[in-house]
Each structure stands twice: as C-alpha cells, then as structure tokens.
Simulated assay, not measured.
Amino acid sequence: MEYRNCPRCGALFPYISSPICEKCVKEEEALFQGVRAYVKEHPNATILEVSTELGISTQKIYKYLREGKLELINNDGIELKCDRCGKPITTGRYCKSCTVRLEADLSGAYQDFSYKRIGKMHTYKREKGKD
C-alpha cells in the first residue's frame, strides 16, 4: 500500500484514489454541503456572493462547477467553456455533443482493445521425479 502526505493538512495517509486524506475529504464534503444549502436557499446568488457569504474562494466554487456538483443558472458574465470545443456550458468540463463524442470514442477504443490478443498463455507440465 502506498502512503502519501495530504497536501492540505500534511497528515500521512494510505493513498487509494483521493489525493487528500479522509479527514480533509470529510471537511471538503461538509464545505460543499454548505455551498449547496446556500445555493438552494438563494438560487440567484452569484459566485461572488456565495464566496463572500460563506468565506470560501471563488476557485473552489469553480471547481464544484467543473466537477458537475453545481450548475450555473444565471451566468452574470461568468462563462464556463467546454474543454474540447470551447462552447459555453453551465456545468462540468464538456458540452453535450463533446461528451457523446468522447463516450463513443472511448467505447470504440475499449472494444478494439478487448478483441486484440497479445500472445498465448501455456501451462508447463513437469515430469514426475524431476525438480
């Protein structure tokens, strides 16, 4: 098992998939739940308002938008763009058409890979009495 230091708090933790320790993951989730609750209560709030009211950075709110956890309703001059084609989007990293294209490309690549066989595997039978 690989161990890493958490970049947020410095604690040593067993690295599985998250780049931060379990304690910081819980803190991050609690922070997101606070943002989510605020946005539910104030659906027309701007990113700057949410940031100011909750005392969190606008970068963190952009991160939630890019992860697909939040969605822009009124963009008040703020615009997310598709990472692939540059079209305006309201959440995530890709527009609908690029998402469909990427899924098709990945599906095709997976099928190509699964049909290719590289070499063969054999078993070795030992003769009795010889080691």
Results as ranks from 00 to 15, higher is better:
residue 112 D to K: 08
residue 129 G to R: 00
residue 32 F to M: 04
residue 120 K to P: 04
residue 124 Y to N: 05
residue 88 P to L: 13
residue 61 I to D: 00
residue 96 K to Y: 15
residue 53 E to S: 14
residue 40 K to Q: 15
residue 118 I to G: 06
residue 121 M to L: 12
residue 61 I to N: 02
residue 70 L to K: 13
residue 43 P to E: 03
residue 19 P to C: 04
residue 42 H to W: 02
residue 99 T to R: 08
residue 98 C to G: 01
residue 82 C to A: 08
residue 119 G to R: 07
residue 32 F to L: 12
residue 12 L to S: 14
residue 110 Y to N: 13
residue 131 D to S: 12
residue 21 C to K: 02
residue 58 T to N: 11
residue 47 I to A: 00
residue 23 K to F: 11
residue 107 S to Q: 11
residue 73 I to L: 15
residue 119 G to P: 13
residue 12 L to P: 11
residue 74 N to R: 08
residue 100 V to A: 01
residue 51 S to Y: 02
residue 73 I to C: 15
residue 44 N to S: 11
residue 102 L to H: 12
residue 16 I to K: 14
residue 11 A to M: 12
residue 30 A to S: 09
residue 89 I to W: 02
residue 90 T to A: 03
residue 21 C to D: 03
residue 44 N to D: 06
residue 100 V to I: 12
residue 22 E to G: 10
residue 126 R to F: 02
residue 110 Y to G: 02
residue 129 G to M: 07
residue 105 D to G: 00
residue 127 E to C: 10
residue 90 T to H: 14
residue 14 P to L: 10
residue 21 C to E: 02
residue 41 E to K: 07
residue 30 A to M: 09
residue 96 K to N: 11
residue 123 T to A: 13
residue 40 K to G: 13
residue 39 V to D: 07
residue 69 K to W: 12
residue 117 R to I: 07
residue 24 C to T: 04
residue 81 K to V: 09
residue 108 G to M: 04
residue 45 A to W: 01
residue 43 P to K: 02
residue 71 E to Q: 09
residue 22 E to V: 09
residue 77 G to T: 03
residue 102 L to E: 14
residue 44 N to E: 15
residue 62 Y to Q: 01
residue 18 S to K: 06
residue 104 A to L: 15
residue 96 K to A: 13
residue 21 C to V: 15
residue 60 K to Y: 09
residue 56 I to E: 00
residue 40 K to A: 15
residue 67 E to G: 10
residue 123 T to P: 00
residue 33 Q to V: 10
residue 79 E to K: 12
residue 24 C to E: 06
residue 88 P to C: 11
residue 1 M to H: 10
residue 51 S to H: 01
residue 71 E to R: 03
residue 66 R to Y: 13
residue 112 D to I: 11
residue 102 L to T: 04
residue 50 V to M: 04
residue 86 G to Y: 03
residue 77 G to V: 03
residue 113 F to N: 03
residue 116 K to D: 08
residue 87 K to E: 13
residue 70 L to W: 05
residue 51 S to W: 03
residue 52 T to N: 13
residue 9 C to M: 01
residue 82 C to K: 01
residue 36 R to K: 15
residue 38 Y to D: 04
residue 37 A to C: 01
residue 127 E to W: 10
residue 85 C to P: 01
residue 53 E to L: 05
residue 63 K to N: 07
residue 29 E to G: 02
residue 38 Y to R: 06
residue 109 A to P: 01
residue 87 K to P: 05
residue 52 T to A: 13
residue 12 L to Q: 09
residue 80 L to C: 04
residue 105 D to Q: 12
residue 47 I to Q: 10
residue 8 R to D: 13
residue 129 G to N: 07
residue 96 K to V: 15
residue 75 N to H: 08
residue 27 E to C: 01
residue 81 K to C: 06
residue 88 P to H: 11
residue 101 R to A: 12
